[in-house]
Structures are given as structure tokens and as C-alpha cells.
């Protein structure tokens, strides 16, 4: 199959083939059917807290994504690479998921865990995110698991005190460092972003000199689009010079 065309295909049906990176074909097949099944069931019935469980302020959904190295991602292929793990509505249901997932520090390769409010996709393009931004904190290797746990516990427990503003949190495992981030709805709301920053400092026990960076999603999108555009232009230029070269060669052959 041709990945480039697959990435461009705007296809939400779930039959796209994004599992090339899986170790074996069998695992890939199994995973795909399981995922479709879980997505189907989560669409049908609402997730509610069980009896005697502690309800959360919001339902949340765990997502997992893994990028095949070296391939530029368009937003469609990003959407295809991201998998829903499941949705929970209570503290106990959260622990059922969390206890049966590996810790971020034990993930391999270029992968991310996302924990977003139910109904918000962990993508810049989602309506809840398009005017938003994120605080990002870069961590040296070995800290991600603990920081991620503290971050999501604070989010689930409504420790940020910014009303409806929080969208979700991400932990990104990268080659030399790990990154945790928390996304909010309104990047221009400075009171909110300041309060999120202060809560992050408190719940993550960060030393005062930790560098925290706020990025609006529009900046991220622009940067991403610019780099994609650059790739396309470069490819186009190469193709153009080839055709010209071939054309010239033919011309020389005919006339010469």
C-alpha cells in the first residue's frame, strides 16, 4: 500500500491500515478488531460510575498513539495512528484502566498517552482545542511516570480550579527526553493559563527554575503546516527538475 495516499485519504470508517508498525500481522489484526469493538460500544452506551464508586466531575478517555519514525504526519494520518483505550466515569474505573496499562516510562519508541475529557479528541483541530494551547514541561528520562501520574490525578481530582477550561493531558515519550503537557480551551485567557501553571508547579513538585513553556495550538498548527508545505514543495521541485531533465534528454536524443 502507499502510505502517502493513505494519509491523505479522509476516511473515518476505521478500516484504514495504520498498524504497519505492529510486531506481527496477527497482533495487528487482533488489536484492530478489539479497538473497533470498544469504539463501537463506547458510542452506544454512556459510561457511568458503578454503584458505590466515586464519580468524577467529567468522564475521561485514554488514548494511545505511536508514530512510525521518519514519516511526516498529516493530521489525518495522526488521527489514524491514535487509538482509544477506553472511557471511565469514576475514580475506581480510572484505576482499572491505569493499573492495566504500562507506565509511560516503560513505553518504547515515539509514543504518547493522552487523557482527554470524553468527547474531546486529542487533536488541535477539535473544536474544544482550536482556540487553545498547552503548558509543556520537558523532563529528563526517568521522571515521566511519576510526573504523569501526579498530573492526571490533579486533573481528575479537579485541582486546577479553572472551571471548564482543561481539555486533557499528554505524556510524550521521545528519544532523549519525555514531555508532559496539559491542554486548555482558551489560550488567550491569561488568568487561566497562569493558574494552570501555578497548579502544575504545586502538584508536580517542580523546582522553581523548571522551564515551563506555553504554546498556543495555532502556533503549533502553523509550524506544522509550514513544515508540511516545505516537504511538498521540496518534493515538487525534485519531480519538476526530473521531468525537465528527462524532457531535455528526449529532446537531445531526437534532435541530436
Amino acid at each position: 500500500m502507499n502510505n502517502k495516499f493513505d494519509a491523505l485519504k479522509d476516511d473515518d470508517s476505521g478500516d484504514h491500515d495504520q498498524n504497519e508498525e505492529n510486531s506481527t500481522q496477527k497482533d495487528g489484526e487482533k488489536e484492530k478488531t478489539e479497538r473497533d469493538k470498544s469504539q463501537g460500544s463506547s458510542k452506544r452506551k454512556a459510561v457511568v460510575p458503578g454503584p458505590a464508586e466515586h464519580p468524577l466531575q467529567y468522564n475521561y478517555t485514554f488514548w494511545y498513539s505511536r508514530r512510525t519514525p521518519g514519516r511526516p504526519t498529516s493530521s489525518q494520518s495522526y488521527e489514524q495512528n491514535i487509538k482509544q483505550i477506553g472511557t471511565f466515569a469514576s475514580v475506581e474505573q480510572f484505576w482499572r484502566f491505569y493499573s492495566h496499562m504500562v507506565r509511560p516510562g516503560d513505553l518504547t519508541g515515539h509514543s504518547d498517552f493522552h487523557l482527554f475529557k470524553e468527547g474531546i479528541k486529542p487533536m488541535w483541530e477539535d473544536d474544544a482545542n482550536k482556540n487553545g494551547g498547552k503548558w509543556i514541561i520537558r523532563l529528563r528520562k526517568g521522571l515521566a511516570s511519576r510526573c504523569w501520574e501526579n498530573l492526571i490525578l490533579a486533573m481528575l481530582g479537579e485541582q486546577f480550579m479553572v472551571g471548564e477550561e482543561i481539555c486533557g493531558a499528554v505524556v510524550s515519550v521521545r528519544f532523549q527526553e519525555d514531555i508532559i503537557s496539559i491542554w486548555n480551551k482558551t489560550a488567550s485567557d491569561q488568568a487561566t493559563t497562569a493558574r494552570i501553571r501555578d497548579t502544575l508547579r504545586r502538584v508536580l513538585n517542580l523546582p522553581p527554575n523548571t522551564i515551563m513553556e506555553y504554546k498556543t495550538h495555532t502556533d503549533s498548527i502553523n509550524w506544522h503546516h509550514r513544515s508540511l508545505l516545505f516537504c511538498w514543495r521540496a518534493t515538487w521541485k525534485i519531480l519538476l527538475s526530473w521531468t525537465r531533465g528527462i524532457g531535455r534528454a528526449f529532446y537531445v536524443l531526437r534532435t541530436g
Partner: peptide
């Protein structure tokens, strides 16, 4: 809590990520 010891019924199998 004892309920957290069993994985969710619809937890997808993702090798190296989940252990349902």
C-alpha cells in the same frame, strides 16, 4: 479498591501498552 484489580472488559489489547 478490589474492583481495580480486574481490567475493564473492553480494554483493547495493544502489545507493550495494555495488559488486559
Amino acid at each position: 479498591s478490589p474492583v481495580t484489580k480486574t481490567p475493564p472488559r473492553d480494554l483493547p489489547t495493544i502489545p507493550g501498552v495494555t495488559s488486559p
